[in-house]
């Protein structure tokens, strides 16, 4: 797939923007480029768990991967700081693990090559 690294950075851009717009003060991020997949892991402190979009996070990120939609819309990810494109992140990833611990949030995303 073309622009693979740019697509990964778009996913990160979207997640970082979303978290900072929803109260986050500190975030740890790791990215692995494995043989078959990319793994993105984020540990986020102080997220606003009462926000409706935060409550929907798990559902939005667990959208089924859809290459036909990704091919058309991927450039929109991370482009806007008023609205979120978490659906698009879901469309661009194969698996999402989302865990809340108090006000901390742990997200792990897998994108197969």
């Amino acid at each position: 797939m073309k622009h693979e690294m740019k697509r990964i950075s778009k996913i990160l851009d979207e997640l970082i923007t979303f978290c900072f717009l929803h109260g986050t003060k500190k975030m740890d991020l790791s990215l692995e480029d494995n043989e078959d997949y990319f793994k993105i892991h984020l540990e986020i402190d102080n997220i606003d768990c009462n926000d409706e979009r935060v409550k929907l996070l798990k559902d939005l990120l667990n959208y089924p991967r859809q290459q036909e939609m990704e091919e058309y819309y991927w450039e929109l990810a991370g482009e806007c700081d008023r609205d979120t494109e978490l659906t698009l992140v879901g469309i661009m990833t194969d698996k999402a693990e989302v865990e809340f611990k108090g006000t901390s949030l742990y997200i792990t995303l897998y994108r197969y090559k």
Binding site: E71, Y72, Y73, W74, E75, L76, E79, C80, E85
Partner: peptide, 14 residues
Amino acid sequence: LPPLSSHMLRVHDG
């Protein structure tokens, strides 16, 4: 059209 349309999205941000 495919590469062009994807790129043009950024002009109006969706």
